[in-house]
Nucleic acid binder design. Sequence first.
DNA 1: CATTAAAAAGACCGTCCGGTTTTAAATTTC
DNA 2: GAAATTTAAAACCGGACGGTCTTTTTAATG
Lengths: 200, 200
Amino acid sequence: MRKGERTKQMIIEKASGLLNTQGYLATSITDIMKKTGMEKGGIYNHFKSKQELSLDAFSFSIKTMSTTFQEAIRSKNTSIEKLNAFLEVFLLLAEDKPIPGGCPILNAAIESDDAHPDLRDETRKAMNDLYSVILRIIRTGISNNEIISTIDSETFTTIFISTIEGSLMMTKLYNDTIYINRSIGFLKDYLSKFETRESD
Amino acid sequence: MRKGERTKQMIIEKASGLLNTQGYLATSITDIMKKTGMEKGGIYNHFKSKQELSLDAFSFSIKTMSTTFQEAIRSKNTSIEKLNAFLEVFLLLAEDKPIPGGCPILNAAIESDDAHPDLRDETRKAMNDLYSVILRIIRTGISNNEIISTIDSETFTTIFISTIEGSLMMTKLYNDTIYINRSIGFLKDYLSKFETRESD
DNA sequence: CATTAAAAAGACCGTCCGGTTTTAAATTTC
DNA sequence: GAAATTTAAAACCGGACGGTCTTTTTAATG
């Protein structure tokens, strides 16, 4: 791996935390210069625009989240356990792990609009992925008779994501994890109601 | 009412929609000039800084929402009906009514952080108000034997707000009201489970 | 180790930003 | 309707922004 590639990765990693914390518009190249310890010319040697750097940083955040989710559910066997593992990752996210600034999808969803179509498209893709992973877990759970089939999987997925994201917003606003903890408690309890009593 | 006061109000109203839609940082004075049809000097005659204008605009958005909520629940008699009325207002909000750009609390909560303590404080106040209104409705409902007393009112309030706000985020991201509609459907159904069978 | 290519630094540029000040126009007020 | 006052316009300002370009330094290559 060339040195330039390593530097580029370092910039992306440092910038991703900064952008996710401060916002994409609120963060200037000067901020990224300070964070990385590099000069402007050194940074622009690797990215043709702030936009490109921002998108790379967002992708890195999403990839990091995705990896964390995958690791969390790998050892879990049932659908219920997998969904609970998801919830634990979101709890960590409220404590700035593995990336600072909260959920990158939530942040980017609020910040991106018609004026930033590229970021919005990437955010949609990231949400699509999160959504379909959860949906698949539920449907697999139904197939395996772990979850009762009366559940509406699409609705449940929507509620699951919405509740978590909304309470993450509240947790960040008040700097108090009670809100995300209440959501997690609720979702675990709610989910247990759809658990089959016996599995075969 | 002096003409200046009327002009100031007009600026606040126009700016509030713009700021709520585009974001507080992403919106420039030039944008507000275009929207209001006024020149810079004319605007700064009424506000000592962009910050002051932004906070006034945010307050206006919150006041508008608050009024809309009050009107929606005024004619309702039971707690359940009042909460359902709240949900209907959030559905309208997804369609840019009464203000464009979605929920101002959600938007400001994500955008404001340590770097913008004034906006964050105002956002917290607005959330406090929303939270306590819903909480009071539930508690009144319990007192009046409309809602069973096993419900945890704080948790329910948190879930209520989180689910709505999260699904508003999804609705905005995808420009599709199915998400907010699913949340509303879920919350109405969930709420009905806590409804007492007979009232006295 | 010398040559070459890649990477980083740093000076530089035009533009747009929030904000100020001066000037002109439009309202009040008497 | 003239004087006083408020309101709006418009020219202006310093600074920060994203981005470029040239130079210097560093790292890879034979």
